Simulated assay, not measured.
Amino acid sequence: MVMLDMLVLLCGQTIAQLLGRLYYNSGGNSKWMATLTLSGGSPLLAILLLLTPPHSAGAGTQPPASKMVPIYVGLGILIGLDNLMYSYALQYLPVSTFALVAATQLGFNSITSHLINKQRFTALIANSVVVLTFSAALLGVGSSSDGTSSNLPHGKYTLGFILTLSASAVFALVLSLFEVTFEKVVRTRTFRWVLRVQMWTNIVASMASVCGLFASGEWRTIPEEMAAFKDGRARYVATLVGTAVSWQAVSVASLRLITRVSSLFANVTGTVALPLVPVFAVVLFGDKMSGIKAVAMLMAVWGFLSYVYQHYLDGRRAATTKEGAAECRVCAARAGGEAVLHA
């Protein structure tokens, strides 16, 4: 099941980022509409929730609504803010650069996991944080070599870079808060509760996006935007629906990995998509794979591998500890039996 969740997360994240860029490339311009697609597919989770058995094992724990409602609202607002920053950033950056800078969320998540979830901060994890930070800094310094940035108004590339970093930090915080919510409040990790938490937090984020859409006045431009969209209205709707469905698949798979393993593991899995998005962006959108971008990608992959190796070491250490504990119990049992026989 963990492998299945990882596959859904990888495929969904790659498709969602490419469709998000396709929306802007084909004539879409509404930031709030793009933001809404990041959480607007949440009503689909109600269908899965209805199909999930209500009396599964461990489902008896029911946290009071007085605790869950503030959590839903608080996390939902954070998710909505994070979605808005990502929407702006994706318009101001080539999708390949966006994907590489977004990989810094692994470094941010290492910090939030250590502070909030008591995750051990080892030398390998520190190396991952440093390398990913330098990777993002290299992209920022080398922005002038990216041919696609020359088409943007002055300062937009830098703004997109800053927004992506900020969104990555907020996303890392949200993942850690999800983990502590299941540990301290929900106290059960069933699929039904995963769907419930995901659905309500995304509904709050969607409501915030709808309010922004109407408050900004962008809702008036939607009919014109749809009519001017490349290849017509059907492709406009299909692009938005596909993006919304993909992000919901990513969210559910990520939350399931958080409940099964940890928020840091879920974030590392998402980082595996790092080499995929730039390659597809070069093929589909004509993004330039410059030397600086290639070096930054290799550095980001190295940062990811540092954490993977740390996870491998932790797994071996845990297995050794269990084996040692089992041997101690056997020895104690033998010693007890010999004492009885002697007596």
Score class of each variant (00 low, 15 high):
Met1Tyr: 12
Val2Leu: 14
Cys11Leu: 15
Gln13Ala: 13
Ala16Arg: 14
Gln17His: 14
Leu18Lys: 04
Gly28Tyr: 04
Thr35Tyr: 03
Leu44Met: 11
Ala57Thr: 13
Gly58Gln: 00
Ala59Trp: 00
Thr61Cys: 00
Pro63Ala: 09
Pro64Thr: 13
Ala65Gln: 09
Met68Pro: 00
Pro70Tyr: 07
Gly80Thr: 08
Ser87Phe: 03
Leu90Thr: 09
Phe98Pro: 05
Phe108Glu: 11
Ile116Ser: 03
Asn117Leu: 14
Gln119Tyr: 03
Thr122Trp: 05
Ala123Leu: 14
Ala123Ser: 15
Leu124Asp: 11
Ile125Met: 09
Ile125Tyr: 00
Ala126Ile: 11
Ala126Glu: 01
Thr133Tyr: 11
Gly142Gln: 12
His154Gly: 07
Thr158Pro: 05
Gly160Ser: 02
Ile162Tyr: 00
Ala167Gln: 06
Ala172Asp: 02
Val174Gln: 04
Thr190Cys: 08
Phe191Met: 11
Arg192Ala: 01
Trp193Ile: 05
Met199Asp: 03
Val204Lys: 03
Ala205Cys: 05
Ala205Glu: 08
Ser216Ile: 07
Thr221Leu: 13
Glu224His: 05
Ala227Trp: 01
Tyr236Trp: 14
Val237Lys: 02
Val241Lys: 00
Gln248Pro: 00
Arg256Thr: 07
Leu257Ser: 06
Ser262Asp: 15
Thr269Tyr: 02
Val272Ile: 15
Val272His: 08
Phe280Tyr: 09
Ala296Val: 01
Val301Pro: 06
Leu305Met: 14
Gln310Gly: 04
Gln310Arg: 07
Gln310Cys: 05
Arg316Cys: 05
Lys322Trp: 06
Lys322Leu: 12
Glu323Thr: 08
Ala325Lys: 15
Arg334His: 10
Gly336Phe: 02
Glu338Tyr: 09
Val340His: 02
Ala343Gly: 15
